[in-house]
């Protein structure tokens, strides 16, 4: 399993945010972490990216235990945060170069990877533009290109389509699905929007810090549309 989460618990003081969360995602699988606001998705992402340390349970990324071998695990992890993390005063290429260097890549090797990643995301001709001048969709593409530079085995995206218009959202969702199929990267895509999930995707339904359901989307929803299933399980409307 590329991503393995076992019996994860976390609380802020007396408030429990995650309670015995377990799931696994296989290689090349697109998994949607679906949950209403406040379900614990952000806490889970903070734990997966080691901004928090687990209080109970374990996380394994590409077979590296996050607590025992954090640097090896982080080297195999690509992250697209919910907030933009681009330096707006730098160009797209400068942003990517900075990230490449944080992962130990420099010179021609870094430039080749940057060119390839930008080309893949259709951003090649914008390499010299400042991030500030990009629209929301292009900023996101830049961040995804950046997250793929070091060829991670697992890619985490925390509500990456927030604030984007419908066609851009659909384009990004399609792109990440293609990426899974073509490169074998494992994707965990946090969202509260059911239209971003396909029947063949794995769905991990998180609600009030617990996993309510985990399985193939088509199997879980049965004959019902996904929003109806989601509403029935969580009591939340989409």
């Amino acid at each position: 399993m590329s991503l393995l989460v076992s019996d994860l618990s976390f609380s802020y003081g007396s408030k429990t945010a995650l309670d015995g969360v377990s799931f696994s995602v296989g290689r090349g699988q697109f998994a949607a972490l679906l949950g209403p606001n406040g379900a614990g998705k952000s806490t889970l992402f903070s734990l997966l990216t080691r901004l928090f340390v687990t209080q109970g349970g374990a996380i394994s990324i590409a077979r590296h235990d996050l607590a025992a071998a954090p640097l090896a695990a982080m080297a195999d992890l690509g992250v697209v945060f919910q907030q933009t993390t681009l330096d707006l005063d730098l160009t797209v290429r400068q942003n990517l170069r900075y990230f490449a260097a944080l992962h130990g890549m420099s010179g021609r090797d870094a430039d080749q990877r940057i060119d390839a990643a930008l080309h893949r995301l259709g951003m090649a001709e914008r390499a010299g533009e400042k991030a500030r001048g990009l629209n929301g969709g292009h900023r996101r593409r830049t961040e995804i290109a950046r997250a793929l530079l070091h060829k991670p085995k697992v890619l985490l995206l925390d509500e990456p389509t927030v604030g984007l218009d419908a066609p851009t959202r659909a384009g990004l969702t399609q792109h990440i699905h293609d990426l899974c199929a073509e490169t074998g990267v494992t994707v965990l895509w946090a969202t509260h929007l059911t239209d971003e999930v396909r029947d063949t995707d794995q769905v991990i339904l998180l609600h009030r810090g617990r996993v309510l359901a985990d399985g193939r989307c088509g199997d879980l929803r049965g004959d019902r549309p996904l929003p109806a299933y989601f509403a029935q399980m969580t009591g939340a409307t989409v």
């Binding site: 982080m74 992890l77 993390t85 681009l86 944080l102």
Partner: peptide
């Protein structure tokens, strides 16, 4: 702004 997160998720101490 989140860019500190980017820095702290780099695989270095």
């Amino acid at each position: 702004m989140g860019s500190m997160r980017l820095l702290l998720t780099a695989p270095l101490s």
